[in-house]
């Protein structure tokens, strides 16, 4: 089986999730006889990154370069990668499930009339096929999904599904193959403009040893002070899931998750947070995770060390009272 891994870089810096996908490819390859893993790097002036990839246990490295690939556009990337795919003829194309991949990979697959199983968390190699595992219902269920029809098959893996530090290094350096990329300016409809960060960072939650995080279970902005008081008593900072910041109940610099901060405090207390993957990726590295949720099947309990199935409007006051007593 020929496996193509599409890595991701921006301005010459790796997105580390690409290495997790490379690990996925190496692991899948080990289950299939005669497998070849070929990572590709795409951009402008990225030969140095291709050299880095060549030190890993891979068959070869594809270098997909063009002036028009300096900045990401869905048209440019889809056209260039289609040319790389035509040349390599892979069976399986693995991508990290990043915002960028979400933006172009389904388009690339559809342009070849092929399907993509997106946002997978794992796989199972069975006799004649590979079963891909992904979440559904915001993590409340998992699903086994398989491909129908002829390859190539497109799969993206969620950040954290594999460990990037487990990548196997090669005994010898792999060859680098430059793909002849034919791209014209008029084929690219999007004009990418500047990248920017929004609000000022008033707090740096990455430095807080304890975080008390509220989710939609807190119901109304009037209830936020209850959690704020508890955070203060515990010697921690207040954090939140995305909907709380979208509503403007707390500023965006308190948002934890893929579009907010990534934190790893010694204690993370999740109050009324369901545990959607986009939240969990931002906090699962915490040393101790406590979840309080009225739904015993809430996915947050999958990553929690301690759990209480209950109503936060009973438990926040109870915790507050107990802490006040011992002060």
């Amino acid at each position: 089986m020929k496996i193509l891994v599409i890595t991701e870089q921006r301005e010459g810096k790796w997105n580390p999730v690409g290495f997790e996908t490379l690990v996925a490819a190496q692991q899948i390859a080990a289950t299939q006889t005669g497998s070849r893993v070929t990572p590709a790097v795409i951009g402008k002036d990225v030969r140095g990154l291709a050299e880095e990839l060549a030190a890993n246990q891979v068959a070869e490295v594809l270098l997909v370069e063009h002036d028009l690939l300096k900045r990401y556009t869905p048209d440019g990337f889809a056209i260039a990668l289609r040319q790389a795919i035509a040349q390599l003829q892979p069976d399986l194309i693995l991508l990290p499930h990043t915002y960028q991949v979400r933006d172009y990979a389904p388009k690339l697959a559809a342009s070849l009339d092929k399907g993509m199983i997106a946002d997978c968390v794992g796989y199972r190699a069975e006799k004649e096929r590979i079963v891909f595992v992904r979440q559904m219902f915001q993590g409340k269920t998992a699903a086994d999904v398989t491909f129908i029809g002829a390859p190539p098959w497109f799969v993206s893996f969620q950040a954290g599904a594999f460990r990037g530090d487990q990548v196997s290094r090669g005994a010898t350096r792999a060859p680098i193959t430059a793909i002849k990329t034919d791209l014209r300016p008029e084929q690219i409809r999007t004009t990418p403009l500047e990248l920017f960060r929004e609000a000022k960072q008033a707090v740096d939650l990455t430095q807080a040893p304890i975080l008390v995080a509220v989710g939609r279970g807190i119901k109304a902005p009037e209830n936020i002070p209850l959690a704020a008081k508890l955070a203060k008593l515990m010697g921690g900072e207040l954090a939140a899931s995305r909907p709380i910041c979208d509503e403007g109940w707390l500023p965006m610099d308190r948002q934890i998750g893929s579009s907010g901060q990534t934190v790893a405090p010694k204690l993370y207390l999740a109050l009324g947070i369901s545990g959607a993957i986009q939240h969990v990726v931002g906090m699962k590295g915490s040393r101790t995770i406590v979840a309080i949720n009225k739904d015993q099947n809430a996915p947050i309990f999958e990553v929690a060390d301690y759990g209480i199935v209950g109503d936060i409007f009973e438990l926040i006051p109870a915790l507050t009272e107990a802490l006040e007593k011992t002060k």
């Binding site: 993509m116 086994d144 491909f147 995770i289 107990a322």
Partner: peptide, 26 residues
Amino acid sequence: EPTQRVERIYVPQKAKRTEFIDGSPK
């Protein structure tokens, strides 16, 4: 033809062992 098939959905396995704490809120 469809390109993929959802074979089965199920309750996911826990990554961690959660210690559940019960009793009254207090």
